[in-house]
Deep mutational scan, measured.
Amino acid sequence: MAAAAAAGAGPEMVRGQVFDVGPRYTNLSYIGEGAYGMVCSAYDNVNKVRVAIKKISPFEHQTYCQRTLREIKILLRFRHENIIGINDIIRAPTIEQMKDVYIVQDLMETDLYKLLKTQHLSNDHICYFLYQILRGLKYIHSANVLHRDLKPSNLLLNTTCDLKICDFGLARVADPDHDHTGFLTEYVATRWYRAPEIMLNSKGYTKSIDIWSVGCILAEMLSNRPIFPGKHYLDQLNHILGILGSPSQEDLNCIINLKARNYLLSLPHKNKVPWNRLFPNADSKALDLLDKMLTFNPHKRIEVEQALAHPYLEQYYDPSDEPIAEAPFKFDMELDDLPKEKLKELIFEETARFQPGYRS
Rank of each mutant, 00 (worst) to 15 (best):
H310A: 03
I103G: 04
L170P: 06
L218M: 15
N224S: 14
E12F: 00
D111H: 01
I74T: 04
N87C: 01
Y317M: 00
S41P: 00
L252D: 05
Q249D: 02
N297G: 04
F78Y: 15
S57W: 02
T118C: 08
P23G: 01
L313C: 01
V46K: 04
P152S: 12
C40L: 05
S266E: 02
N253F: 06
F168H: 02
I31H: 01
D106W: 00
V46S: 03
H299W: 10
K207H: 12
S213Q: 06
F228R: 04
C216T: 08
G230C: 15
M38S: 11
I302H: 10
E12A: 11
P311L: 12
S57P: 00
K138H: 04
K48E: 13
V173Y: 07
I89P: 02
M108P: 07
D162F: 03
D291V: 14
D336G: 03
I89F: 13
D318A: 14
D321K: 05
K342G: 08
H80C: 01
K340Q: 09
A9F: 01
I227F: 15
A325P: 01
H310W: 02
H232L: 15
I126C: 12
R277W: 06
P298I: 01
S142W: 04
E345N: 06
M221F: 06
P247T: 14
T118H: 05
V46L: 11
Q132A: 09
I198L: 11
L200T: 11
L156Y: 08
D337M: 06
Q315H: 13
E341N: 03
L150G: 09
P356K: 07
A307V: 04
P196L: 13
L163P: 11
G85A: 08
A2R: 09
L28Y: 05
H232E: 06
P23V: 05
N201M: 07
H310R: 04
K164V: 11
P319I: 08
G182R: 15
V18G: 15
N154M: 11
L287K: 05
I217V: 08
L278H: 03
L134F: 10
G136L: 05
L146S: 08
E314D: 13
Y64N: 15
L146R: 07
S246G: 02
E96Q: 01
L137S: 11
W275N: 11
L287P: 08
R135E: 09
I140T: 00
L237W: 04
K285G: 12
H80E: 02
E326H: 01
Y139K: 12
R91D: 01
V18D: 15
T110F: 00
L112F: 07
L155E: 02
H80W: 00
C216D: 05
A260F: 02
I240F: 15
K344F: 06
A309C: 00
D291Q: 11
D149S: 00
S29I: 13
L157Q: 14
C40R: 01
K300Q: 07
D288G: 03
S248A: 11
L289V: 03
I53L: 04
M221P: 06
L264H: 01
I89S: 02
T26G: 10
H61L: 15
G204W: 14
L170N: 06
S266Q: 01
T160S: 15
L252A: 08
E197G: 09
K203A: 11
N123V: 07
P247W: 07
Y263A: 04
D291H: 05
P58N: 01
S202R: 14
N257Q: 11
E220L: 08
L267W: 00
L267A: 04
A286Y: 00
L112H: 06
S208V: 11
G34W: 14
F59Y: 14
E345F: 00
E349P: 01
M293G: 03
A143P: 05
S202T: 13
A195V: 11
S246K: 01
E326C: 05
S246W: 01
G204A: 12
Q315G: 02
V18W: 04
R359V: 09
A219C: 12
Y187W: 05
D210I: 04
T185N: 12
L28D: 01
Y317H: 06
C161H: 01
E250C: 05
A2Q: 00
G357A: 08
Y312F: 15
S208N: 05
T159D: 10
W275L: 15
D332W: 05
L130E: 08
E305Q: 05
E322T: 00
D251L: 08
K292T: 08
V104T: 01
S284C: 11
K73G: 14
H269E: 13
V188D: 14
K55S: 07
G16W: 00
D167E: 09
K73R: 13
N154W: 04
G242R: 00
L28V: 05
I72W: 02
I126R: 11
C216M: 09
R91S: 15
D149G: 09
L146N: 04
A7W: 08
Q355N: 03
H141R: 09
I209R: 13
R67Q: 06
L258S: 09
L237E: 09
I140L: 14
C216V: 09
Y193A: 12
M333W: 03
Q119L: 14
Q97C: 08
H178K: 11
E81L: 09
R225H: 11
P176C: 11
E350A: 01
Q66S: 04
L338D: 05
E96R: 03
S41D: 02
L137I: 05
I255L: 12
T351M: 01
S213Y: 08
M333P: 08
K117F: 10
H120E: 08
I95T: 05
A282Y: 00
N82W: 13
R67N: 00
V49S: 07
D332V: 15
N123E: 10
N276E: 10
D235I: 05
I103S: 08
V304Q: 12
E197V: 14
L75H: 00
L76K: 03
V101N: 12
A286Q: 03
Y36C: 12
V18E: 09
L258H: 07
L222Y: 11
K73T: 08
E349I: 01
M38C: 07
Y263S: 04
P280Q: 12
L155H: 03
T351N: 11
E81P: 08
R148L: 15
K272Q: 11
D337K: 04
N271D: 05
T190S: 15
E60M: 11
I243C: 03
N47E: 13
V188A: 09
Y233Q: 06
V51Y: 04
E326G: 06
I140V: 11
L237K: 03
L290W: 05
G245R: 10
L308C: 02
W192I: 13
E303R: 00
E186Y: 05
K330D: 00
C65E: 05
S320G: 08
L218G: 13
R91E: 05
A4N: 01
S223E: 13
T110I: 10
S360R: 14
L200N: 12
K117E: 10
H239E: 10
V14I: 13
A325R: 07
L244C: 04
I324Y: 05
L150R: 03
G34D: 01
Q236L: 15
V39E: 15
I302S: 05
G32C: 15
A4Y: 00
E220R: 10
L170F: 04
F296N: 06
K48W: 07
V173Q: 12
L69P: 02
D162H: 01
T351R: 03
H61W: 02
S223H: 05
G10W: 15
K272C: 10
R91L: 14
D162C: 00
H180Q: 14
L313A: 09
F296V: 09
P58I: 02
S266L: 01
V214Y: 12
R67D: 00
S320L: 10
A92M: 00
S360L: 14
C127T: 04
H232G: 00
A286H: 01
N201T: 07
L107V: 05
A42L: 02
N281F: 10
I324M: 05
L218Y: 11
T63N: 04
C254N: 05
A7T: 10
D291K: 11
A143V: 11
G215Y: 11
L264Q: 15
G37R: 14
Q132D: 08
A325Y: 02
H178S: 11
D210R: 09
T295R: 08
D106H: 04
E12S: 14
I217N: 15
S248M: 08
T63L: 12
L157D: 12
M98H: 11
L156I: 05
K164H: 09
T110H: 04
D88T: 04
K99N: 15
R50K: 13
F354K: 11
G22L: 07
Y36S: 11
H299V: 13
E81N: 04
D162G: 04
H147L: 14
Q132C: 06
Y102G: 02
S320V: 10
A7I: 06
N144E: 08
S122D: 04
A9M: 01
S41G: 04
L258V: 06
A3V: 13
R77T: 01
L146F: 01
L308W: 07
Y43H: 03
E350G: 01
E71G: 00
L134R: 04
D162W: 00
S246P: 00
L237V: 00
T110R: 07
C166H: 05
E341P: 10
